[in-house]
Nucleic acid binder design. Sequence first.
RNA 1: UGCCUCAUAGUAUAAUGGUAGUACGACAGAUUUUGGUUCUGUUUGUCUUGGUUCGAAUCCAGGUGAGGCAACCA
Length: 555
Amino acid sequence: MSEERSLNFLEQIVEEDITNGVNGGRVLTRFPPEPNGYLHIGHAKSICLNFGLAQKYNGQTNLRFDDTNPVTEETEYVESIKADIQWLGFQWANELYASDYFAQLYEFAVTLIKKGLAYVDDSTPSEIAALKGTPTEPGKNSPYRDRSVEENLQLFADMKAGKYPDGAKVLRAKVDMASPNMHLRDPLMYRIKHAHHHRTGDAWCIYPMYDFAHGQSDSIEHITHSICTLEFVPHRPLYDWFIEKLEIFPSHQYEFARLALNYTVTSKRKLLQLVNEGYVSGWDDPRMPTLSGYRRRGYTPSSIRTFAERVGVQKRDNLIDVGLLEFCIREELNKSANRVMAVMDPVKLVITNYPEGQTETLDAENNPEDESAGHRNVTFSNTLYIERDDFMENPPKKFFRLGPGLFVRLKYAYIIKCESFEKDAAGNVTTIYCTYLPESRSGGDTSGINVKGTIHWVSAAHAAKAEVRLYDRLFSVENPASEEGDFKSFVNPNSLKVVPEAYVEPSLLNVKAGDRFQFLRLGYFCADPDSTPDKPVFNRTVTLKDTWAKEKVKN
RNA sequence: UGCCUCAUAGUAUAAUGGUAGUACGACAGAUUUUGGUUCUGUUUGUCUUGGUUCGAAUCCAGGUGAGGCAACCA
C-alpha cells in the first residue's frame, strides 16, 4: 500500500493530456541550457523536473543546447553541462543543438516572409527601441514594415550572404506594434553577427533570436511539454504565434517558478562575475551553488535530487531555506558515511597513569547506522590530541566535556579525569594532564561510572596530517540579489577557513578524491582532488547539527 | 498608471466545494559511548472586503501586496 502523493501542477497537466490522448499519450520533454556557463542548483530543479516527468510517464528527454548566440557560448560549457547532468543521474535520449536547425530555421523565416508575416528592418537598435513604445504606450510601425515580399526575400538572402555589417539589418516578425504584450510588438527574429560559432564555425553570419529558435526547435523535435521558468510567460503568445503561422508541430510551453536559495545567488551572470573577479577559485569552488561546486563540496547526486523533489513545483516566487539542502545531505550521509576521528584545533592531552610508550589497539565501529560498514582499529597511547573546544578552564554548568576535575569518555576508549593543565605566557592551554580508569574500556566498562560527554581524539604519535577546508555560506545576507548595491559586497569574508594541519586517523592517508566521511562530532567531509598521498585535503560538506552551539548562543 | 503571473504556519508545499495536513525550522522531553542519529510532544497559517452556497483556502467580483514584461541575451 503506497501512500498517494499529490501531483504537482505539471504532473496534472501531463496526466490530463495522457488521459485525453493528446499526442497519443507520448511524453517528450527537453532540457535546453545555453552553453554560456556552468549548471547550478536552479538548473538541477529544472533537470529533475524535465527528466523526472518524462521518466514517470514513460517518456524521454532531449538535451538541447540553445546555442544561438555565438559570442557567449563555448564548448567548455557544453562538456561541463553534459558531465553535470550525467552526474546528477540522468541520461538524455538525444544530444541536440539549436544550431543543428539553423538551415531549417532559415527556411521557416523565408516561409513567414512569403506569407507577409516577416520583414527586414534597417532601423538602428535605438530607432527600434524608440518605436517600440512602452508598456503603457503602444508602439509605432517601422518605416520598413511594408516592404514587398520580393524585397524582403532578397534583403534576407543578402543578410545571410554576408553583404551587411553587424547590426545593419534585422528580420522582424510582423505581429502588432500596439499589442499590450511587448513581446508581440514585431519581435526580432534574426540579427547579423559576424562571429565564430562553437559548432557551425563561420558558416552563418545571421543568427536566430531565442523566440525564433526555441519554440521551433521544440516543434522540430516534437517536444510535447516544453517546460521553462516564469519569466517566459509573456513569451508564450509569441511561441504559439510562430507555431500557428508556420503550421508546424504544436509543442506547448508551461512555466514554473525558478528555484531561489537564501544566502546564495543563482544567476549565471552573477556566478560568472564571482569566478572572473576572483571571489572564488573557479566554477567548481566548493562554495559555489554550481553542480560542480556541490560535487566537489561532497554533495551526492541523490541528495540534490531529493532536495529538488522536496522544494516542489509551483508558479509562485519562492526563497528556499538553504537549510533544507543541508538537511538532505546530512540525512543521506548519516546513513552512508563512515565515521573517523579528526582534530581541527589540537591541544595535547597526556594520560599520566598510562605507561609511556605503550599502545593498544581499540575496536571502532565505522557506522552506527549501518552494521555492515564493519569495524576498524584505532591506536591508543598516553599522548593524544583533542579539540581545543573540548576543554574549558572555567566550564559552565552544562558543559559535558573536559575541565579541571571533570570526567569525560574518550570515544572507543577510556573514561578520563582532568587532573591539571599548563598554559603558555599568552594564556593558551598547552597541555592537559589526565588520569584514566583502566576498567572503563569501551565494550567492557566495569567502572560503574557514567559520564555525560564523549569526545574524539587522535594519538599524537600515530596521527596523520591533513589540510581541511571549512566552508560557510558564501553570502552573509539572505537575499544578496535583492539587496541595494553590488551583490559582491555581501560576500561572507569567512566563507572559507583553511586548517593547514589537522590531525586525522592514519587510515585517511589512502583516500581518493570524492571519498566521504563523517569526522566524528564535526561534520561530513569529502576528499578534494588536491589531495596527495602524504597530505590529504578535505572539504567540509556540512557540519553536524550542533545543539551545544545553539545553547552557547542563548547564554 | 497598460498587460501577464502569483498570494495557505518562520520557509516551502498539500487539501481540486465537505475535518486545513506534510516536510524543514523552532521549542520541550526521552534515548544515546557523536551535544550526532532515533523517538515523542508543542507551537505557528488560508492577504482583505463583499458575493454564490447547507457548506468556500478552493467558485465570482472589488481591493491590497509581490513578481515579471520596453536586450540585435536566453
